[in-house]
Computed example of a mutant assay.
Amino acid sequence: MDVDLPTEPVVPLQVRRQTGSYRLSDFIIHRTLGTGSFGRVHLVRSKHNLRFYAIKVLSKEKIVRMRQVSHTRNEQQMLMAVQHTFIINLWGSFQDSANLYMVMDFVPGGELFTLLRRSNRFPDPVAKFYAAEVALALNYMHSLDIIYRDLKPENILLNADGHIKIADFGFAKHCNTNAWTLCGTPDYLAPEIIRNERYNKSVDWYALGVLIFEMLSGLPPFHEPDASHVVLYEKICAGPAAIRWPPFNALAQDLILKFLEHDPTKRYGNLKHGAGDVFAHPWFREVDWDKLRKREITAPYLPKIASAGDASAFEKYPEDNVAATYGQPVDDLYGDMFPDFDYAGV
């Protein structure tokens, strides 16, 4: 098959991108953008260039207690290795005695998940636009031997111009052969992950099939809202025969089925032509891949943003004065476990 693959600037994983040197006192913390098991993401403004950023603050004690040291270090290392228009930028990282800090893009449009829930489902051209941008990002990551492993609408952010930024690399892994760790979001897990088999980068293409289905229908294909994960995993392992198909575009359904192929050796994105099969699929026929990569195609939805620091697209969280605790001197029991996070003081 002759297909012109989108050209991507490749950064070898061992060559890390240039990041800045930061400390907490460089920023004014405005509000919380999100919370998680290990800490929070804050909207901050630089005192120096006055730009807005998002800072992820992670408790070292919680990371160690929940055995997430390798995932946390992986996230930083993966973000230092990638530089792509549809992937969030890591500008720098540092630590103090209690916390890790990662300075990243502030992406003001919020999560694709929020837009999808508000819309209920996307029209076929809208789902195609976001799927195509995700496909470009996945192809770039795979060219660096990175498996992303956590594709879902919550991890796809919308920039001010409506184009995507993939975030949250906590499950990403540099791997040029196979992996076997059980991780990811249940609805998006490929059957080989559930069966505890070795797997490769094709699990990301499987997840893209799930994402396309969810964007077109409003829910993932095997979704079980009130059942245990056991029932969900049984349906995933049963395959497409367990799916109740809404009236999709026939070409979209064909591509979804090729992504949800049970046998990874027969799955689209993992065949002889790799991602070339994905880009050449008839559902994507009208996509100009080079223009899309350059963000020269107008996005289907433009976030309503009043100003540079407008965070109204994000849910409000109680602040609990947590920011006042950052930088306080405590016994540092875990600093040597995160050697790539600079000690920059406060």
Rank of each mutant, 00 (worst) to 15 (best):
V203N: 05
D96Q: 04
F122Y: 04
V330C: 13
M1S: 15
P240I: 14
A190Y: 03
K165S: 05
A190F: 01
D150M: 11
N176T: 15
H262T: 15
I236S: 07
S143I: 05
C183I: 02
I63V: 14
V10H: 10
A323I: 10
R195G: 06
T114L: 09
D331R: 15
I29E: 08
T85A: 11
P300M: 02
H42P: 07
E296A: 10
L58Q: 07
G39W: 07
R31G: 00
F248T: 01
V82P: 01
V322D: 13
A313Y: 03
R195Q: 10
V41D: 01
H30L: 07
A313E: 10
R121M: 09
R16K: 15
I193E: 06
D161T: 00
M66W: 15
E75V: 09
R121T: 05
Y130R: 02
Q328L: 10
A137Q: 09
Y199C: 04
L33V: 00
G209W: 08
D96W: 00
T72N: 01
V231S: 08
G39Y: 04
N321G: 14
N89D: 12
I243N: 04
K152N: 01
P225S: 13
F169N: 02
G36P: 06
R40Q: 11
L251Y: 03
H84S: 06
E61T: 14
C237Q: 14
A98G: 12
A299Y: 08
R67F: 02
D187N: 14
G36L: 10
T181R: 08
D168A: 03
G92Q: 01
L292F: 05
A250R: 12
S228I: 09
H71K: 15
G327T: 02
L112F: 07
Y22A: 08
G162I: 08
A252I: 00
Y188D: 12
D145R: 04
R244L: 12
A54V: 13
A179W: 08
D187I: 12
N159H: 14
V64R: 06
R285I: 09
G345P: 15
T19L: 05
T35E: 12
E197D: 14
A135I: 04
A127S: 09
V230L: 15
D145F: 06
Q95Y: 04
G274C: 06
G218K: 04
H30V: 13
